[in-house]
Design a binder for these strands. Structure first.
Lengths: 341, 341
DNA sequence: TCCCCCATTGTTAGCGGTATCAAAGCGGCA
DNA sequence: TGCCGCTTTGATACCGCTAACAATGGGGGA
């Protein structure tokens, strides 16, 4: 095992080094960097040359301290999934356009880590937070946090009520359920998502409301998690019932994938024997074979608009507290009328 | 549209506020926060109480400036894919254990943005960089960057030669190709990945080497991109050939998914008519139906060990410049001997 | 009793920038 | 010639925190 000696790290040049080199004041160097119009062009040129030669770059930490702002936004996401990163892309685009940098901070659905990120920002590490989904109220640690400027994305944050840009998951889930009802299904199952995710609860609520409104039984509503494995396991339980459901509304596309796998494994067909409806309209739902019927969530726009709103908040401009974006159903190859309709 | 007025933001309490409140010096407050053993317990308690009451939290930016370190690591990833985020998870775990925070900085394979992140870190925003894959040498802008302590993850960075923790993609791709050869295939195709990704080039090279070593023709080697759509398109081209390949080595699992779709669409079966081999061993390859044979890349360990090495570098401890981790083949349901063997 | 030492707290100099105010130099005009 | 005002540059306070050094006071040993 060949060990390298650590390479010696040169102390980075500071503004003083440049000033001393040219025998001018640090103020002049600072101005040459950020307000060159205040200086004689010849001076700016001399400074530029010395900066280049010494390899000077302004220290951002010092700059941030003096100016009291970082132009950094923390994007707090519960999990590394493509669904959340579609939102992230929208945020990134808006941030780029508005001169902010974004960094992804990932909590693994751990409320403690979520709090740590809030604290970091409250301590000046960044100017604001975009909270993409978040932990359930009751799982949050009692520690008193100070909240930096924050916008909730995807759903409201119960209890803290940050300004938000979101969709109505209850209504969207009801829409998905109604799609199955309108196809003629009566015994409709629901496999819900991660118990810690408020979004999962909202989707479940939408399902229950739609079923109740149609006078149908909700006995096929089972718990799950946002993964194909959990979807498969939940579907296996549903298939073991004496009377099987003829349709399933899964709380996410990933769950739908697992459910389809279980149905096929039981020798049944989709949608011939059982229809499957997903949620989120992830890329997976288009890639999968068969392509999955699902509910489209405008992830990119949610991110884009949330970042824009956060910028307004930071600039102390007026803004709308709660913004709702529309969703719609995408019918693909996994939903059809029941056989014995 | 109801506009909320921006809520007034209170100036956060500083160490001076706490000191003034208790009529003690700022040094005592600072010590109560970070070295309480130097103070009388009663004093620590008084400070704690005032800190709580005023809601004081040390300003991290000021702390960073004074201490000359942020304990933040930038993880620079080319794209938001689950493959890269498996690596990210390993990094995160190690960082947590070692008292660092990590932030994900995403370049979209844009060398300019990659450079911007390097600059930010060089300007003091973070202590180091973990470069997960990176842009091709020839696409990099000529601008002179100063590099902060950096470790390459997944592959070496040609031209810059940072210390690395990686796998031998050439050997791994050759291994995958040999698996197909050993099954009896002779007409083996390769669909390569994104032309900007050095990894794609390495995998292609491994394929070419293995084929050459076996004395087989490489006429079925076609360009592609890391997506199911590109895989499907590439496969359609391959299927249009007068003499079709009997096996395909895809440069990623996502490409494999697309290829399988195209094969099925052409009325052929996998692996009955054509075998498909993936690469990366993403979760997708286990989820998909059929489950995809692939090459396992130890993503979590790569991330974990890279972060550990970066910590050693920052601590000026000795380290091994280039670390190689082993890979292995995972045979699932998409590879079999050719029909007319 | 005196002195030394240690425990505890205070004072202050930066970290590397930016902004404010002051000063210098110069041209124009009465 | 004297004065005004503009352009250009310099000196310095300060952002909030930590660390080095100074100061204070009390207890114990000679």
């Amino acid at each position: 095992m060949s060990m390298s000696a650590p390479p010696l790290q040169r102390r980075p040049a500071t503004i003083k080094d440049v000033a001393r080199e040219l025998d001018i004041s640090v103020a002049t160097v600072s101005r040459a960097m950020s307000k060159p119009h205040l200086l004689r062009p010849a001076t700016v040129a001399r400074v530029r040359e010395a900066v280049e030669r010494l390899g000077y770059r302004p220290n951002l930490v010092a700059q941030n301290l003096k100016l009291g702002s970082t132009r950094i936004i923390y994007v707090v996401v519960p999990a590394m999934s493509l669904f959340f990163f579609d939102v992230f892309r929208g945020i990134e685009r808006a941030a780029l356009e508005q001169g902010y940098s974004v960094v992804a901070a990932h909590t693994g659905r751990d409320p403690v880590r979520e709090g740590e990120y809030f604290d970091q920002v409250a301590c000046g590490r960044a100017d604001g937070v975009l909270l993409v989904s978040s932990a359930r109220l009751e799982t949050r640690p009692p520690h008193q946090h100070q909240y930096p400027p924050t916008v909730s994305v995807l759903e409201v944050d119960e209890g803290r009520e940050f300004p938000s840009v979101r969709v109505d998951h209850v209504a969207a889930a009801a829409m998905a359920t109604n799609h199955l009802i309108e196809l003629g299904h009566r015994r409709i199952a629901h496999i819900s998502g991660n118990a810690l995710a408020p979004m999962a609860e909202h989707r479940r609520r939408g399902f229950l409301q739609a079923m109740a409104a149609a006078g149908l039984s909700t006995e096929y509503c089972v718990p799950g998690e946002f993964s194909p494995e959990a979807g498969q396991a939940a579907m296996e339980i549903l298939l073991a019932r004496a009377v099987r459901p003829t349709a399933v509304f899964a709380s996410s596309d990933e769950i739908a994938v697992g459910a389809i796998r279980a149905i096929k494994a039981a020798g049944l067909s989709v949608p011939g024997d059982i229809s499957v409806m997903g949620y989120e309209d992830q890329r997976l739902s288009r890639i999968y074979d068969p392509q999955i019927s699902t509910v489209h969530i405008p992830t990119f726009d949610l991110g884009y608009q949330a970042m824009t709103k956060l910028r307004r908040i930071l600039a102390r401009e007026p803004y709308e507290h709660d913004v709702l974006l529309p969703t719609h159903i995408v019918v693909r190859a996994t939903t059809a009328a029941p056989k014995q309709a």
